[in-house]
C-alpha cells in the first residue's frame, strides 16, 4: 500500500502543527502561571525589606543582594580567564596537542552537572581552603561552572572576525598583541558579551552549586567571607519546605523578570553594536 505524497504531507504538517502548538502552549503557560500567581505580591517593600520569620513574611532584599553579588564576582574572575583562553587558542597557537587538551578540558567541564560543582566547592573552598560557606566560596565555584561557556562563545566570536582584518592590521605595522586588542577583540565583542550574559543568567538560576558553597544565611553579609542566600536558593527553600507559597511565587516572578532583563540587555547591546558599525 502506498500513500500519495500529498496526503503524507498533509498529515505530517498537521502533526507538526499540533506538537508545536502544544510545546509553545506549555512554555507560555509556565510564564503566565508564575506571573499570574507572583506579580500581585511584588511591591517596593517585598523587594527592599528584610525577610521576617524565615521568609514567611517581609521582603527578599538580602537575597537580591546575593543574586547580584555572586554572579558579579564570578564574572569578574571568569571573563579574563575565559577570553584569555579563547585568544590564546585562536591567535597565539596553532592546533596541537596542548590546544586539544585545553578544548577537551573545557568540553568536559561544560558537561559536569552543577551538583558536582557543589560537592567540589564544598570540599575544596569551604572545607580545605577554610573559606566556609561564603560569598567567596560561592563565586569561585560559579567561576568553575561558567568558564567553559565563556571560552566557547568567545572562541566562536573571535573566529568569526574576518582574517582580512588581521592581515590589514599586521600590514599597517601592528604587533600581534595590538592586533588582538585593537582589531580582534572589539569586533568579537558582541559574541563575548552574549557569552557573559548567558553565564550571568545561568549563575542567577543556579541552586545546587550555590547552596552548598555560599550557604543560605538570610542576614545581610558584611564581608566576602559571610554566607549569603541567592533568590534561587531562597525560592527553593520557600517552596521545598512549604514556608510560603505566596512568597515563593513572588520570588519566582522576580527571578524570571531578572532573566528577562538580562536577555533584553544583551539583545539591546547587540543591536547597538551592529548599528554603530554601519553608522
Amino acid at each position: 500500500m502506498t500513500v500519495h505524497p500529498r496526503y503524507t504531507q498533509t498529515i505530517a504538517i498537521f502533526v507538526l502543527t499540533l506538537l508545536t502548538v502544544l510545546t509553545l502552549a506549555v512554555l507560555v503557560f509556565i510564564i503566565v502561571f508564575v506571573f499570574g500567581k507572583g506579580l500581585p505580591y511584588i511591591s517596593y517593600d517585598f523587594l527592599f525589606a528584610k525577610p521576617e520569620d524565615m521568609g514567611r513574611s517581609g521582603g527578599i532584599f538580602p537575597t537580591l543582594i546575593g543574586t547580584v553579588i555572586l554572579p558579579l564576582f564570578a564574572i569578574i574572575i571568569a571573563t579574563p580567564l575565559g577570553v584569555g583562553t579563547a585568544v590564546y587558542l585562536t591567535e597565539y597557537t596553532r592546533e596541537n596537542r596542548i590546544t586539544r587538551i585545553i578544548r577537551f578540558g573545557a568540553d568536559c567541564l561544560a558537561g559536569i552537572p552543577s551538583i558536582i560543582f557543589g560537592l567540589f566547592g564544598f570540599i575544596f573552598f569551604v572545607t580545605t581552603l577554610r573559606m566556609g560557606w561564603s560569598i567567596m566560596s560561592g563565586s569561585l565555584t560559579l567561576v568553575f561552572m561558567i568558564l567553559p561557556t565563556i571560552i566557547r562563545t568567545s572562541e566562536e566570536a573571535i573566529k568569526a572576525v574576518p582574517y582580512s582584518y588581521r592581515e590589514v592590521s599586521f600590514s599597517l605595522g601592528a604587533t600581534l598583541w595590538q592586533t588582538v586588542r585593537k582589531v580582534v577583540l572589539p569586533n568579537a565583542l558582541p559574541g563575548i558579551v552574549t557569552g557573559i550574559m548567558l553565564s550571568i543568567g545561568r549563575s542567577i538560576g543556579e541552586t545546587a552549586a550555590v547552596i552548598f558553597t555560599a550557604g543560605s544565611s538570610l542576614r545581610m553579609p558584611h564581608s566576602i567571607f559571610d554566607s549569603i542566600r541567592t533568590m534561587s536558593v531562597h525560592f527553593y527553600i520557600l517552596a521545598r519546605e512549604g514556608i510560603s507559597n505566596k512568597n515563593a511565587y513572588a520570588t519566582a516572578a522576580v527571578l524570571i523578570i531578572s532573566i528577562l532583563i538580562i536577555n533584553l540587555i544583551s539583545y539591546w547591546m547587540m543591536n547597538m553594536f551592529i548599528a554603530k558599525k554601519t553608522k
Binding site: Y165, E167, V168, S169, G173, V183
Partner: peptide, 22 residues
C-alpha cells in the same frame, strides 16, 4: 590588498589606525 578591507570603524579612525599604534 586586492580587495578593499576597511576596518569596521569611521573613516578617520581607519586613517589614524597605524599612527596611533606608534
Amino acid at each position: 590588498f586586492a580587495l578593499p578591507v576597511p576596518l569596521p570603524a569611521s573613516i578617520y579612525d581607519n586613517i589614524v589606525f597605524s599612527p596611533s599604534l606608534f
